[in-house]
């Protein structure tokens, strides 16, 4: 069972994640967008959206730190586990609360603003359930875990397991030792990853960092037009 949940599921999810993005990019560049609803309503969006987005960027940053950097490295740098844990929990809680608060505002807005609600697709709803579910499980585990006296050191279980997936030597036994909250959070995250390429979340991968360096005005020749897409039959 553990092998299925913590080895098979992650690999399936990640495969779908990567292949899905490639496929979506090739098949559906036109649908690759933020699908912003700011035109309909901007008052709530101006509070909720930055709160959510900046919050979740911090959350992602925290996960990169927590999952990818082994405990031995921070030890070597002279950071004690307690100090690390304190900073991680503090920052993580703040970021998580910001994200959830922003998401709550956005969902309230989505439900109550007529045009926004009617522009919401089933796809969006599934995405919201997965995203908010993952967020709640993560934040809940962190907060509840720290209310007890002995918070779980996920950097000895979850993190090595997560890294082991990418070494192609997955160790499901590590994950089996983690508390149920962490396990559920990880599974929800993989479900989200598998759904990701088919949702509006793809816009994460078009973060326009190139804007910082490109010239202001883009010139293009008529001949630059993409020729017939590869997947289309030659007529």
């Amino acid at each position: 069972m553990n092998t299925f949940l913590y080895v098979v599921v992650p690999y399936i999810a990640l495969t779908v994640f990567v292949a899905g993005h490639i496929w979506r990019y090739r098949y559906d560049k036109f649908g690759w967008t933020t699908r912003s609803s700011q035109l309909y309503e901007r008052r709530l969006l101006r509070i909720g959206s930055p709160l959510f987005h900046f919050g979740i960027l911090l959350v992602v940053l925290g996960h990169v730190g927590g999952l990818l950097i082994p405990e031995s490295w921070t030890d070597a740098a002279g950071i004690s586990e307690d100090a690390y844990h304190f900073v991680a929990v503090a920052l993580g809680t703040v970021a998580g609360v910001c994200t959830l608060l922003g998401a709550a505002i956005l969902i309230y807005r989505r439900r109550t603003t007529g045009p926004v609600f009617s522009a919401t697709t089933v796809n969006d709803k599934v995405m919201y359930v997965l995203l908010i579910g993952t967020l709640c499980l993560g934040l809940g585990t962190t907060v509840l875990g720290n209310l007890t006296d002995h918070p779980h050191d996920y950097r000895l279980t979850v993190s090595p397991w997560f890294r082991s997936i990418f070494y192609f030597q997955p160790d499901s036994s590590l994950m089996a030792q983690a508390p149920i909250g962490f396990r559920l959070h990880a599974l929800a995250a993989f479900a989200l990853f598998a759904f990701w390429p088919f949702s509006r979340l793809v816009h994460v991968f078009s973060a326009p960092l190139g804007y910082l360096t490109r010239p202001y005005i883009v010139y293009r020749s008529r001949d630059d037009r993409p020729t017939r897409p590869g997947w289309e039959r030659v007529r």
Binding site: Y27, K29, F30, G31, T33, R35, T121, S199, P229
Partner: peptide, 11 residues
């Protein structure tokens, strides 16, 4: 309507 809602589908 494509599989991802109103806007999807190959151009």
């Amino acid at each position: 309507s494509g599989p991802f809602g109103e806007s999807s589908g190959g151009p």
